[in-house]
Design a protein around this nucleic acid. Structure first.
Length: 422
RNA sequence: GUGGCUGUAGCUCAGUUGGUUAGAGUGUCAGAUUGUGGAUCUGAAUGUCGCGGGUUCAAAUCCCGUCAGCCACCCCA
């Protein structure tokens, strides 16, 4: 019987896995430099955490969750995003007693039951940060800077940062805007596509995301209400401060009044970083402020901001941008052995070299020298170490530099020192 | 969930209007005089032609279904 991957999942094979390590290490490094500590939360949680957190009517909750009943009949869901679980852990472990802001980062897989597509998997990895306990616009700016620093550190250029504020739920803020937007769009409803007509009632903000040309032309009319103009004084001041700080930091961003995000929990600042070379799924990184979520999930009222990068999409954009990754898979040395005595010696030598951190592969099988040299070449070994009868008699090994082809004899007792230097 | 394209050796693909033992390149393995790789040459192995059903004397080739991949919608990382 032959088995296949489950739809929408992917093996990360040698060659690729080194790139993943590189990305996760860079993320851990940058996040920790910004003061974040790693948190590992379970891959599954009770379903209600997500329905409450992300929003009952959101697409993720209504049709994209991997939900199942466990043996006791509890409804369990594979996490579709990282924030809800992190918030749950924050509340459950009383992390609010730590000095604020409490800064946490996570790296791990997320699961969404969607049709696979370019840049979209049912299991995908996210590397995100969450900062709890401060409503300061400086923190918003810092969080955005954290994201941009990571991307810069990785050599990503030409990515676009979009910024918006979607205000808060007080009546003179987002609800007032939604009403104004609805009124405006209703007056032009004959120009809207069918799905937008439905969205007009269900989720008017999302209409701004529509890709249909005729809809877009409506959004570009000068009279369309724009969220930033409808923010309440508090949210408006906050947004202005965020922008002021970003300018101070010389951050390259575009204010985009059409930017809205899929989760219900966002308030005030939202942002998104896209790569236009990725196809339809071009969002590489997304985040924002969510001041109501901690309370919604049963904690004390706690303001928070965060973002998350999609590992696969990040990797794809870096590759289309031509970024080179370090190749760590190639061994430093390949030990060629000729005969049983040589294998005994090679076992010992290999141990010494590995102890010194030298990446070593030795030939354990009795193959011809030619075959072994071919293997050394195929594995891209930097050096071949040849141990045969002649060498054993002399107490030496022949070291061949695979790139130049030059070789020299080195005493077996000196090998480790010799290779450590080169 | 909807739509379009695709599905032949590990990989990339040929396969003519349905017609004998399904091919190439690449990779793998082995060899080309005694202990040396990357070039060249020689040889070898590997396919339930995605799966199931149907039409036919005969199907990789036509039809239906199904699964999977890719891409797009929806939505998101």
């Amino acid at each position: 019987m032959k088995y296949n991957l489950v739809r929408g999942t992917k093996d990360v094979l040698p060659g690729e896995s080194g790139k993943w390590q590189y990305l996760t290490q860079k993320a851990s490094y940058v996040y920790s430099v910004f003061g974040y500590c790693e948190i590992k939360t379970p891959i599954f949680e009770v379903t209600e955490l997500f329905t409450r957190g992300i929003g009952e009517t959101s697409d993720i909750v209504t049709k994209e969750m991997y939900t199942f009943l466990d043996k006791k009949g509890r409804s369990i869901t594979l996490r579709p995003e990282g924030t809800a679980g992190t918030v749950r852990a924050y509340i459950e472990n009383n992390l609010n007693t730590l000095p604020a802001p409490v800064k946490l980062y996570y790296i791990g897989p997320m699961f969404r039951y969607e049709r696979p597509q370019a840049g979209r998997y049912r299991e995908h990895w996210q590397m995100g940060v969450e900062a709890f306990g401060s409503d300061s616009p400086a923190l918003d700016a810092e969080v955005i800077t954290t994201a941009l620093t990571l991307l810069k550190e990785l050599g990503a250029t030409g990515l676009k940062t979009n910024l918006n504020s979607i205000g808060c739920i007080s009546p003179d803020c987002r609800p007032r805007y939604v009403t104004a937007l609805k009124d405006f769009l209703k007056s032009r409803s004959e120009k809207l596509c069918d799905t937008c007509k439905v969205r007009l009632e269900k989720n008017p903000l999302r209409i701004l995301d529509c890709k249909v040309e005729t809809c877009r032309s409506v959004f570009n009319e000068p009279g369309i209400p724009k969220m930033p103009e409808y923010l309440c004084p508090s949210c408006g001041a906050h947004f202005n401060k965020v922008k002021e700080y970003l300018k101070l930091l010389k951050t390259d961003y575009s204010e985009n009044y059409k930017l809205v995000r899929g989760f219900d929990y966002y308030t005030k600042t939202v942002f998104e970083i896209t790569c236009d070379k990725l196809g339809a799924q071009n969002g590489v990184l997304g985040g924002g402020r969510y001041n109501g979520l901690v309370e919604e999930l049963g904690g004390q009222p706690t303001p928070a901001v965060g973002f998350s990068v999609g590992l696969e999409r990040l990797l794809m954009s870096l590759e289309t941008l031509g970024v080179k990754f370090p190749d760590d898979d190639a061994p430093d040395v390949y030990i060629v052995t000729l005969g049983g005595e040589a294998i005994k010696k090679a076992l010992v030598v290999a141990g010494e070299l590995r102890g010194a951190g030298i990446k070593t592969i030795m030939a354990c099988e009795d193959k011809s020298m030619k075959a072994q040299m071919k293997l050394a070449d195929a594995l891209k070994a930097k050096k071949a170490i040849i141990i045969g009868d002649n060498e054993l008699k002399e107490g030496v090994a022949v070291i061949k530099d695979m790139a130049s082809g030059t070789q020299q004899k080195v005493a077996l007792t000196e090998l480790k020192g010799f290779l450590s230097k080169t």
